[in-house]
Simulated scan of single mutants.
Amino acid sequence: MYAKKIRVFIILAISDSFLDATEKLNITQPTLSKQIQLLEEKFGFKLFLRDNHGCYLIDEGKIIL
């Protein structure tokens, strides 16, 4: 059930950017953001720090990865 969201998380975690991840996954940026948001809601904590320069795994995300 969550395999797609986990795959999206892994690709984003190892990618340089949202753009790189969307190209690898062949999905749009809003779709990628929504999948990550749903996964974060399921876990109950954030996985990434997002800013104007991209996104970065935080400690909780590193543990999950």
Rank of each mutant, 00 (worst) to 15 (best):
M1S: 13
M1W: 00
M1K: 13
Y2G: 10
Y2P: 01
A3H: 07
A3F: 07
A3L: 14
A3W: 04
K4N: 11
K4D: 10
K5P: 05
V8N: 14
F9I: 08
I10W: 09
I11G: 03
I11F: 02
I11R: 08
I11W: 01
L12W: 04
L12A: 09
A13T: 02
I14S: 12
I14P: 01
I14W: 07
I14M: 12
S15A: 14
S15D: 05
D16Q: 15
D16G: 15
D16F: 05
D16S: 15
S17V: 10
S17G: 12
F18A: 14
F18E: 15
L19W: 01
L19Y: 12
L19C: 08
D20I: 06
A21T: 10
A21N: 06
A21V: 09
T22G: 02
E23P: 01
E23C: 06
K24Y: 04
K24A: 07
K24P: 02
N26M: 09
N26K: 15
I27F: 00
I27Q: 02
T28W: 03
Q29M: 09
Q29C: 01
Q29D: 03
P30V: 03
P30F: 01
L32R: 05
S33F: 04
K34N: 12
K34Q: 11
Q35V: 00
Q35L: 08
I36Q: 00
I36Y: 01
I36T: 01
Q37D: 08
L38G: 03
L38N: 13
L38H: 11
L38W: 02
L38S: 12
L39C: 03
E40D: 06
E40F: 01
E41Q: 13
E41G: 06
K42V: 03
K42N: 05
F43G: 02
G44R: 08
G44L: 00
G44K: 09
G44W: 06
F45N: 11
K46M: 10
L47Y: 05
F48Y: 08
L49K: 14
R50S: 07
D51Q: 07
D51N: 15
N52V: 14
N52E: 15
N52C: 09
N52P: 02
N52R: 15
N52D: 14
H53A: 13
H53I: 12
G54L: 08
C55S: 15
C55I: 08
Y56A: 05
I58Q: 05
I58P: 00
I58N: 15
I58G: 00
D59R: 10
D59L: 07
D59Q: 12
E60W: 01
E60A: 14
G61K: 05
G61L: 10
K62M: 09
I64M: 09
I64Y: 09
I64H: 00
L65S: 12
L65T: 10
